[in-house]
Design a protein around this nucleic acid. Structure first.
Lengths: 233, 233
DNA sequence: CGCGGATTTGACATAGTTCAATTCGAGTGG
DNA sequence: CCACTCGAATTGAACTATGTCAAATCCGCG
């Protein structure tokens, strides 16, 4: 795993970051008198942020691009456990243990802020507020896994619909009208996330298009009827 | 939810507990000069330990009996997310948030030790060791959920086999020979946990018996061939 | 323009569900 | 001690959603 130093960073990448009041990294760097050691870097498409079994040395905030976390089963299948998009925190569950339980790989060129785990742990000792913020983010990770477990018990249509609805919510788009979604993952990756065959995902997409719920061409997709999509879940 | 006071408890149920050197509750009560407020009580079969949305006020250590955690889907189906047996910690993920994300109900009369969440949080601030122990237990909860996600991608035979193997491991039985397992949950509950129809679970059980892997009569079940079971996973 | 991977479509196979009918077995009461 | 009962478990038969395999098509890119 390599993080090429980016050219002429400020002492902390957080000081002039537009999201510094909402970001975990900035909260970490807010230690009076010392830097949390947050660094920013870019990860090439296909490169790993970490692998299963790696010693945990950082957690990551995604600034741009997209990545996926996954495990490989004994049977050799890639089981995707999540996609991380801009502003997501990646690898938070690593806080609960010393080694990573998933692999993480950039699915497009990705900018990340790296938060050294030692600094995170230290700050957690100093500040109950920081600690509780972190626990609450961990809670969202539990919610996400529970949600995935629930989705596994739904039909293919429901899985895809729920996925699209979630993507739409992430974009916080206008209340009404069509939404333009960028789906950075391949159909196959989406299928591996939803636990479906990629052919099935493809068929669901065409079905939704025949119902005038959406229009899609490759990575780009227009949501025409959000309420119909919501009703399908 | 009611916890009938048990008769003439010591100040802390931990002081004379046989598991006091391994138990989270005892670690909590080990605060010098003050009690962590651990209390022991019994929960009737069918009674709830907590429900979805309840304010988190405690986490629980199961001393005996068995319980299940579950959610009810919009469609009204009970989706079981875990079984808690003796010595398990129940509701630990509640540490990450203020309300419970599952229901928990005793599937047989169950003895629990109740650890007030405020005391847990306080001790977490005082002791980095206690905090890290807790985080590591949270990590096992993540592992468990990841394991469930993986099981969802297996055949019915593999799901049941993996479940049995795990139950056997919990009993830490002799290295070889047959193992006597007590399965405190109904076939239907097991099916709701494994995301199978109860008919399917039943059929897998008979299949395994025809293969001389096990013999079962209701709640009691004898594992005859552990290696065959392991090979099926 | 043409290549190669990604996507879509079709035809068929199948694991698991559903529904319906027995059978089992732990309590209960006579 | 035995007959009853009622929920749980098992078995059978038919159905279906999704997977699998194979054959087009599409599309971005050099």
């Amino acid at each position: 795993m390599s993080f090429p130093p980016s050219s002429s960073q400020p002492a902390s990448p957080c000081t002039d970051c537009s999201r510094r009041d909402k970001c975990l990294g900035a909260a970490l760097n807010a230690v009076p008198g010392s830097s949390g050691g947050v660094t920013r870097s870019a990860v090439d498409r296909g490169a790993h942020l970490w692998r299963v079994g790696d010693t945990v040395d950082s957690i990551y905030v995604i600034r741009g691009g997209a990545s996926k976390t996954y495990v490989v089963s004994e049977a050799g299948n890639e089981e995707i456990r999540g996609f991380q998009l801009a502003n997501d925190v990646a690898g938070l569950d690593a806080l609960c243990g010393s080694t990573h339980r998933t692999n993480a790989r950039a699915i497009s060129r990705t900018w990340v802020c790296r938060l050294p785990i030692a600094a995170v742990r230290a700050r957690m000792s100093e500040s109950a507020e920081f600690r509780d913020g972190l626990l609450s983010k961990l809670g969202r990770e539990f919610d996400r896994l529970h949600d995935m477990l629930h989705r596994e018990r739904c039909t293919a249509d429901q899985r895809v619909a729920a996925f699209l609805v979630r993507q739409i919510e992430n974009e916080n788009p206008p209340e009404t009208g069509t939404v333009d979604l960028e789906l950075p993952m391949t159909r196959t990756d989406l299928a591996r996330y939803l636990d479906l065959a990629n052919e099935t995902v493809s068929r669901v997409f065409t079905r939704f298009q025949n119902l005038n719920i959406m229009r899609s061409t490759g990575a780009r997709c227009e949501i025409l009827d959000r309420s119909a999509l919501g009703a399908l879940c």
